[in-house]
Design a protein around this nucleic acid. Structure first.
Lengths: 130, 130
DNA sequence: GGTTGACCTGGAGCGCACTCCAGGTCGTAC
DNA sequence: GTACGACCTGGAGTGCGCTCCAGGTCAACC
């Protein structure tokens, strides 16, 4: 019923190697194994994986994700600490978005400059041939 | 008149080591030197450096920045190629912002869950003592 | 029963972007 | 004239997040 590592990789967008690596470093709890010792990921495993990849996308370092993962293992008592981590990360993301927006403005300005150069370049011949 | 490496570092927010490293890998043209062989950064050097750090903030890999830097050295003829790089990077940034926004929604959802847990936790005792 | 292919393990290797270090040279302040 | 601090060089080292590899097991299909 569960999912092979190949399928978990496909669904999460991570490589098979990365899945095993995440398990080694305790980001992922070891999934069930079938009779032959092959990993068998549950839907819950995949949901957790999906959340991890979100955290990764926000730029959260693995160290911090491990901290979150270990708190999760401790159950409800750690909910406050976990929430604090997410709230902090939310602030990090908000700031990052602002940074990127500022950089985008600079890019737009520079791109505008290049467009002006192009217009000038196409103007000169026109004047020359007028 | 120029700026020492310490001051260039302070103004750019990079470390002295990073400035020398950028020069080694040809991101930065070698600045002037004073009589004693010490680097002397011009305003123009600092402006270029400021732009580089913007590109870095957008997540552009050094490899690509080097490409841009080398085009710049070739002068006006390379303007089209340089513009193309910036336009592409603009798209990268726009996409990244969208990704981050999506992740922020997930974070908000999760944070909301934790808040619900907190409310429930403070509700139970109230009911118990009622 | 042999081949194939997906999976397993432990461990080495890699690319990136720095960061640090040893050992040396200058110029200024005492 | 010497102590100090800022700078210099070439090269080694670091931390992160994977990624790859050798050598092996196992189940299924021909």
């Amino acid at each position: 019923m569960g999912h092979s590592i190949a399928e978990a990789a496909r669904r999460s967008g991570l490589s098979i190697d990365t899945l095993r690596y995440y398990e080694r470093i305790k980001l992922l709890d070891p999934p069930e194994r079938d009779a032959a010792g092959r990993r068998n990921y549950s839907e819950e495993d995949l949901a957790w994986l999906a959340f991890l990849t979100r955290l990764r996308t926000t730029g959260m370092p693995i160290r911090r994700m491990r901290e979150y993962a270990s708190l999760r293992r401790r159950g409800t008592a750690s909910a406050g600490r976990r929430k604090a981590i997410l709230v902090e990360q939310r602030a990090v993301v908000a700031e990052r978005i602002e940074e990127l927006r500022a950089c985008m403005d600079v890019l737009d300005y520079k791109i505008g400059n290049y467009e002006r150069i192009e217009r000038d370049a196409s103007l000169v011949p026109r004047e020359a041939t007028a």
